[in-house]
Simulated scan of single mutants.
Amino acid sequence: MASGIVDLAYVLPSGTARVEDLSRSSGLPADQIQRITVTPEWPVLAPGEQPWDLAIRAARTVLDRTGVAPASIGKVIYAGSGEWEPAFWSPAAKAADALDIRAAHCLEVVNFCNSASPALQLAADETALNRSEYVLVLLGDRLSQLVDHEDPESKALFNFADAAAAVLVGSRRSEFEILHTALRTDASWVDYYSADREDFVTLVRRRGRRSGLRQAYLKNLAELVDVTLGSLGRSRADVARLLINQTDRTMHEELLDDLGIARERSVFNYHRYAHQGPADTFIALADLKAEGRLDPGDLILLCTSGVGFSWGVTALEYRPHSD
């Protein structure tokens, strides 16, 4: 039984980060920071906002729009970095309680900004095997709060922003059939980033100066794209859209060039939102659908990545249904 995305939505926070503020706090020139962020300002959590609350709002939109009853949801998956507040706590269960989902299994998937791919794979397997009628996947992190904006050495992370998304997966009424997911980790990069606890605040730090991460990104994503296409009997020329985490625009462009996929077949949101963590690809997908920029039968690849370092590619086929 085929499984797919029934509907999806995202919510942006109400706060704003600005290059000029980061320049003052870090002592770095504003133009140097904007080469990383691309945009002069981007959405972040305001004081008192929580990513799981944004995810709940996105989920309500999806459930209201589809008319799916909470009792039909058999699993709630919350995916992201694991750095949620409070600690030692389940944002998936919090969301289920707020949404009146009473009989579902709630769990978290922690694979950092790559979390969307394994979460979607788990949801697809769950519904394809008829273990659940629907699975609700929620994504949301507080990435901007994990960066020391006073540390010039952390500048590569200054584009970290915040948002949340909700994705409803099911075997009926889906508009994006989930065709295949491929995942891998190059564990030799495991210690490249880790976090310190400083005065009860978690801050991510780069460890050492090892080179080659860019090449690892390009190699692993390109290979996973080919593995995915090969499993489907398709070619790179068949890809209608390739959507990727918005971490580095030049690397994004280089990957497209290496694959021979025109840049017009991707989405660049750096100038709007900076890097929205695991929600990046779903923000792009939701906008493409809302703007009518997809055609029936389009083959869409969602490419994700996260510290560890892990990569994932999920293939979707757009099959809009008529109401």
Rank of each mutant, 00 (worst) to 15 (best):
residue 2 A to N: 11
residue 6 V to Q: 07
residue 9 A to W: 03
residue 12 L to N: 04
residue 15 G to P: 10
residue 20 E to P: 00
residue 27 G to T: 08
residue 32 Q to G: 07
residue 37 T to P: 03
residue 39 T to P: 00
residue 40 P to D: 13
residue 42 W to V: 02
residue 45 L to R: 03
residue 45 L to E: 05
residue 45 L to M: 08
residue 48 G to Q: 07
residue 57 R to A: 15
residue 68 V to M: 05
residue 71 A to P: 04
residue 74 G to P: 04
residue 77 I to W: 11
residue 78 Y to Q: 02
residue 87 A to S: 08
residue 93 A to G: 12
residue 98 A to R: 12
residue 99 L to M: 09
residue 107 L to N: 04
residue 108 E to H: 12
residue 108 E to I: 04
residue 113 C to G: 03
residue 115 S to R: 01
residue 116 A to F: 10
residue 128 A to F: 02
residue 130 N to C: 11
residue 130 N to H: 13
residue 133 E to R: 15
residue 140 G to T: 04
residue 143 L to P: 01
residue 143 L to T: 03
residue 147 V to M: 01
residue 148 D to P: 01
residue 149 H to S: 05
residue 150 E to P: 01
residue 150 E to F: 03
residue 159 N to V: 02
residue 162 D to F: 10
residue 163 A to G: 11
residue 171 S to T: 15
residue 176 F to M: 08
residue 189 W to G: 04
residue 194 S to T: 11
residue 198 E to P: 01
residue 203 L to H: 12
residue 205 R to D: 01
residue 209 R to V: 13
residue 209 R to S: 15
residue 211 S to L: 14
residue 214 R to Y: 08
residue 218 L to G: 13
residue 222 A to I: 07
residue 225 V to L: 09
residue 228 T to R: 04
residue 235 S to K: 09
residue 244 I to V: 14
residue 247 T to G: 01
residue 248 D to Y: 03
residue 250 T to G: 02
residue 251 M to R: 13
residue 252 H to E: 06
residue 254 E to F: 00
residue 255 L to Q: 07
residue 262 A to F: 00
residue 263 R to G: 08
residue 267 V to E: 12
residue 268 F to G: 01
residue 268 F to M: 10
residue 273 Y to V: 03
residue 274 A to I: 05
residue 275 H to M: 05
residue 282 F to K: 04
residue 292 G to N: 05
residue 293 R to D: 13
residue 294 L to R: 12
residue 295 D to A: 13
residue 295 D to K: 11
residue 310 S to F: 02
residue 311 W to F: 15
residue 318 Y to H: 15
residue 321 H to L: 15
residue 322 S to E: 15
